[in-house]
């Protein structure tokens, strides 16, 4: 399968995950705060291809999700979360001391911190940071689960590549 095909597939996968998590309202007070399931696609892309490809998939997801399920208001929150999370994950991966779990925990936690900062800017009050403990906890837990899942997938992808079975299989 070609790279473009895999990247489109990952974007589609991210869209499905975004759709699923949109059905689970985590914190109705702050729009756009989600479990962060779609991060799985970003982590996979980051490890399989690299920063540029992961960034493209991430931005395509934010754009498509906003058009399909959201509005301009939630788009701002999603974008801030995605950019924060992406920068944190690239930095963590570069540090070379984390596994996919550490990288994904960084992504999950900073996704939520980014959205809190936007919420604080929009409402011009720091009171939104009362949600910080809960957002750290949920970001951390989803981060761990997604990190483990991504690690498993990558191990299998590498094994199937090693056996010469024609690259990445869906």
């Amino acid at each position: 399968m070609g790279k473009t095909a895999v990247l489109s597939m990952l974007t589609g996968f991210a869209l499905i995950l975004s759709y699923v998590e949109a059905a689970i309202p985590l914190m109705p007070q702050i729009p756009g705060v989600k479990l962060g399931l779609a991060n799985l696609a970003t982590v996979l892309c980051l490890y399989l291809y690299g920063r540029r490809e992961a960034f493209l998939v991430n931005m395509a997801r934010v754009l498509l999700v906003s058009v399909l399920f959201g509005n301009l208001y939630t788009a701002g929150y999603s974008l801030a979360g995605a950019l924060f999370s992406f920068t944190a994950m690239v930095t963590a991966k570069r540090a070379r001391c984390f596994s996919t779990v550490g990288v994904s925990v960084c992504g999950g936690v900073f996704h939520n911190i980014g959205q809190l900062l936007v919420a604080a800017a929009v409402t011009t009050t720091l009171q939104v940071f009362y949600y910080l403990p809960w957002l750290l906890l949920s970001g951390g837990i989803t981060g761990i689960l997604i990190g483990i899942l991504a690690g498993e997938v990558l191990v299998h992808v590498r094994i199937s590549q090693g056996k010469g079975s024609g690259g990445i299989r869906g």
Partner: peptide
């Protein structure tokens, strides 16, 4: 194969 979690992972968590 299991994901190999590093010491840095545990510290971060």
């Amino acid at each position: 194969e299991k994901v190999h979690m590093t010491r840095a992972d545990w510290t971060l968590i």
